[in-house]
């Protein structure tokens, strides 16, 4: 069986040959099977977001290769990779267009893997389909279909972003701390929706989070990063017995120092 996502010795260095030189990613090797749900943790600057950006095409690695379903995607620009990569960002404002209506936003997301033409963006048929999709969120958004998205709350916008990123069933779903900017109850709602949607479509998912408990609760695999490297890779069986404490101890054992993130400890 072909690997769904395969990163082969990927390197990324920022500001090379300047005093600000910083290692973004160093020799990253990662293989994801279809249906894997990997959570990624690590302190600030560990390279979690860089990893996401290298996969999605926002950044280009200095060396190495990235394959999706066996196909090397390094030559593709960001917008072409978006055909098979779904993303939800940390900022709830980033995933939707505020001056456009809910149905227009859904229509744009729906056109992801098609060629955009001069056909009407929203037809009667697609509208019915969008209605059904939005109902699954149980937020009552189906009654506000022609409202501008800028009028929605942060939680509602993030739920909509999640739906838009997933309802076309991308090969890979990248979630970059997508609950971090929400209050606890909204974050819990989005976490629940994430679980539900990923399971429903069987999506191969990578989720970056600062919340260790969330990283343990969700998914079938856990990766810990530090200084641009993957320092720990926990598989499904071992993940069941993980606790926040055992993760922190593990970090200390590998690195010989305490984990340097108050944010990770507190959450």
């Amino acid at each position: 069986m072909r690997r769904l996502l395969h990163l082969n010795s990927v390197h990324k260095i920022f500001n090379e040959d300047t005093p600000d030189e910083k290692i973004g990613l160093s020799n990253i090797n990662l293989k994801l099977e279809p249906g894997d749900f990997v959570t990624v943790i690590g302190s600030n600057g560990a390279g979690k977001s860089t990893l996401m950006n290298v996969i999605s095409g926002v950044l280009f690695p200095d060396a190495g290769e990235i394959r999706i379903k066996g196909k090397n995607i390094l030559s593709l620009p960001e917008h072409k990779r978006s055909r098979f990569i779904g993303r939800v960002f940390q900022d709830p404002m980033a995933g939707t267009a505020p001056t456009m209506t809910i149905e227009e936003n859904l229509a744009m997301a729906y056109a992801r893997n098609k060629r955009r033409t001069l056909r009407r963006g929203i037809t009667k048929r697609s509208r019915d389909f969008f209605q059904e999709a939005v109902k699954s969120l149980h937020l009552g958004l189906e009654n506000r279909f022609t409202a501008k998205v800028g009028l929605l709350s942060g939680g509602e916008r993030q739920a909509l972003s999640l739906l838009m990123a997933t309802f076309t069933e991308p090969d890979i779903l990248l979630l970059d701390e997508h609950t971090a900017a929400l209050d606890p109850s909204r974050a819990a709602l989005i976490t629940k929706l994430t679980k539900q949607i990923v399971a429903e479509h069987g999506l191969t998912t990578m989720m970056v989070t600062h919340n260790m408990q969330q990283a343990i609760d969700l998914g079938n695999r856990l990766i810990m990063m530090d200084k641009g490297q993957i320092i720990l890779d926990v598989d499904e069986v071992n993940k069941r017995s993980l606790t926040v404490e055992s993760l922190l101890n593990e970090f200390q054992r590998i690195r010989g120092e305490k984990m340097a993130s108050d944010r990770a400890l507190l959450s």
Partner: peptide, 18 residues
């Protein structure tokens, strides 16, 4: 729609392959 989104939220519409 994609043109309007380009003026509204570039990052978003790029993540939907425009």
């Amino acid at each position: 729609l994609a043109l309007r989104a380009t003026g509204d939220n570039k990052r978003m519409i790029r993540s939907f392959s425009a």
